[in-house]
Design a protein around this nucleic acid. Structure first.
Lengths: 148, 148
DNA sequence: CAGAAGTCATTAGCGTGCTAATGAGACGGT
DNA sequence: ACCGTCTCATTAGCACGCTAATGACTTCTG
């Protein structure tokens, strides 16, 4: 059933657009969310650390590019690590910290709104199904790693 | 539950990566699939027609950009409509037509593999849930249209 | 202590998708 | 027949994500 791929892509597209629009109202774009989530938790990490701590897999170059835009937008500052000249540490500005609550609320509201017509049971089933799919696909990637 | 947005994003990311890899083995990239699906059905459409016929919402500029890459890759040719100089019609090459079966099979296989650990009931629930979410989000967009 | 090897961030270059601006062509009204 | 309007594709410019290449800095080894 190829339909399933289309359904999931469309769902993601709609949710991403809605999420971007909601976060834009607080001066943050959707791609910046991953970085913010990690730095809200632990400030002053390096791009590599952020990439490995993120809940979603993301590459270091993407972190660097996005961080550059965030710096321009006044959301964070770069500072070289005094003990190791290779490292660059990213620190959130007050503005980025102030955005934490409204953005997290906006995303929670969006998730609730999107699933408003589902029963509790359906929401549970959905989460279960997505988790199983992720496991299936990441298990395969791990296997390839082992072989490679 | 913001978790839900993350779960869905990750699922989409894994599926998109796997799909792109599978299609790449047949000389087609994932972004080209929407155009191919429409032209396999009806060859010689214009970018605007493809955009409106696609199962997934896509803008005309995206069609045009992707079509340019597909032209360079020898997947389609552009021809001006003889009756209306504004229109450009896109025609698939033999190569693009030959790719239809293997690509559709690859995508079907991927969908089956990804959902291999789900029961039939879980697959049904998943589809129902995604459909409900899409309806909820597109209903809102339609409302905004009416207001605007 | 010097040079090789490893570990970082960054840059380069690509694909995908969007909105807004542009320009060519068709068409309706006068 | 002309001119404004509408309808197209296209271009410009942006965000986001990836891989591969680069360059700076550390660290290990002889």
């Amino acid at each position: 059933m190829d339909e399933f791929l289309t359904l999931l892509t469309q769902t993601h597209k709609l949710l991403a657009a809605a999420s971007d629009e909601a976060m834009s109202r607080h001066g943050v774009r959707i791609g910046q969310n991953l970085i913010l989530e990690v730095l809200w938790e632990t400030d002053g990490l390096t791009p590599g650390e952020i990439a490995s701590r993120s809940r979603l897999p993301i590459t270091t170059p993407t972190i660097v590019n996005t961080a550059t835009r965030m710096e321009a937008a006044g959301l964070l500052t770069r500072r070289r690590d005094p003990n190791d000249g290779r490292l660059v540490r990213l620190y959130l500005t007050d503005r980025a910290r102030a955005a934490q609550r409204p953005i997290q609320e906006a995303r929670r509201d969006l998730a609730e709104h999107a699933t408003a017509t589902l029963t509790d049971e359906e929401r549970l089933h959905l989460r279960t199904a997505l988790t199983k799919i992720i496991q299936q696909l990441t298990a395969e990637a791990a296997e390839t790693d082992r072989e490679g």
